[in-house]
Simulated scan of single mutants.
Amino acid sequence: MLKLASEQVPFGVYALEKDGMAELRKDDCKSKGRLKELIRAYRLQGFKVHQNGV
């Protein structure tokens, strides 16, 4: 399932994982800075972040 989601988001966050549950996302980013900002924010909330680009 995560592999399929990964193919849908070429540069951005495609899934978050926490407590054995995964939430599929489609957070497209236009810059590396924005992607890093999103990753940091999600990690501070305790999520494992699945992303393409960094």
Rank of each mutant, 00 (worst) to 15 (best):
M1V: 07
M1L: 15
L2H: 13
L2C: 14
K3S: 01
K3P: 06
K3I: 07
L4T: 13
L4C: 09
A5E: 13
S6H: 11
S6K: 15
S6V: 00
E7T: 14
E7R: 11
Q8V: 12
V9W: 08
V9Y: 06
V9G: 10
P10F: 13
P10E: 15
P10C: 05
P10H: 10
P10T: 03
P10I: 00
F11Q: 10
F11T: 06
F11M: 00
F11Y: 08
G12Y: 04
G12I: 03
G12Q: 02
V13K: 02
V13Y: 01
V13F: 03
Y14E: 03
Y14M: 01
Y14G: 08
A15S: 09
A15G: 09
A15K: 07
A15M: 00
L16Y: 05
L16E: 07
L16N: 04
E17Q: 03
E17G: 06
E17S: 03
D19M: 04
G20W: 08
G20T: 04
M21K: 14
M21F: 12
M21S: 14
A22F: 09
A22G: 03
E23K: 15
E23L: 09
E23N: 11
L24D: 09
L24P: 03
L24K: 02
L24C: 06
L24T: 02
R25A: 06
R25V: 00
R25L: 10
R25C: 09
D27P: 08
D27S: 12
D27A: 11
D27V: 04
D28Y: 05
D28K: 06
D28P: 09
D28T: 00
D28E: 14
C29R: 03
C29S: 02
C29P: 04
C29V: 01
K30N: 09
K30H: 07
K30L: 14
S31R: 07
S31M: 05
K32D: 06
K32E: 13
K32Y: 07
K32S: 13
K32R: 11
G33C: 03
G33N: 14
G33E: 15
G33H: 14
R34H: 13
R34E: 15
R34Y: 06
R34T: 02
L35P: 05
K36W: 07
K36Y: 10
K36R: 10
E37I: 00
E37F: 07
E37S: 09
E37Y: 07
E37G: 12
I39T: 00
I39W: 04
I39Q: 01
I39R: 07
R40M: 01
R40Y: 09
R40T: 10
R40V: 04
R40C: 11
A41I: 10
A41D: 13
Y42N: 06
Y42K: 12
Y42E: 12
Y42M: 06
R43Q: 15
R43N: 13
L44D: 14
L44M: 15
L44P: 09
Q45F: 14
Q45W: 02
Q45I: 08
Q45L: 12
Q45G: 05
Q45P: 02
Q45S: 14
G46D: 07
G46R: 01
F47G: 03
F47D: 04
K48N: 08
K48A: 00
K48S: 08
V49P: 03
V49T: 02
H50C: 03
Q51N: 10
Q51C: 05
N52R: 10
N52T: 11
N52W: 04
G53P: 07
G53T: 01
G53C: 02
G53R: 09
V54H: 12
V54F: 12
V54N: 10
V54E: 13
